[in-house]
Amino acid sequence: MDRRRPSGQERNYLILDKFIERYRGRPGGLVRILFKAQELFGYLSPEVQTYVAEKTGLPASHIYGVATFYSRFITEPPGKYSIGVCTGTACYVKNAQAVLDRFQAALGVKEGETTPDGMFSLRTTRCVGACSLAPVVTVNDDMVGEVTPDKVADVIRRCREAEAEEETERVPERRRPERDERAAPPGP
């Protein structure tokens, strides 16, 4: 899949530079920088980690240590639709395990993996704070409540429909803005 073009990539680094300048050395600065990097590039690849190390002046081992300590950081490329099954307590007692099992079977991947076509990745998340709607599943930034095992197929179908819609909307000559660019703040 053609996910990142050089121009988009360069822009992302420029945005990241500004962010690093603003947050370097402040409380929580590194974590915020890494979040921004993850938002821009989708995940924290070794290259991105090295870049952050150079720009912040922190040792690469330190960046790696922080990136791997926290469960919200991902160091592998995610799928286009990142499905998260909440395994917090409220969801667990409402049988989140069965929901996870159903997703694994339906997508043919295990927790922490991505489908070969790069479309879906499956992971477990910590409590997302919507415990009254347990079991809860997140699809990228959206939250879906009361996802019992028999609603799993529905969640997957809706992703595929969104994908098909995007396919038909895509105008061949005009480049569709990439997700990162849409999320980027307006330029100077």
Partner: peptide, 8 residues
């Protein structure tokens, strides 16, 4: 100011 926790 804000400081983000990252899931631990």
């Amino acid at each position: 100011d804000l400081c983000l926790g990252a899931g631990a």
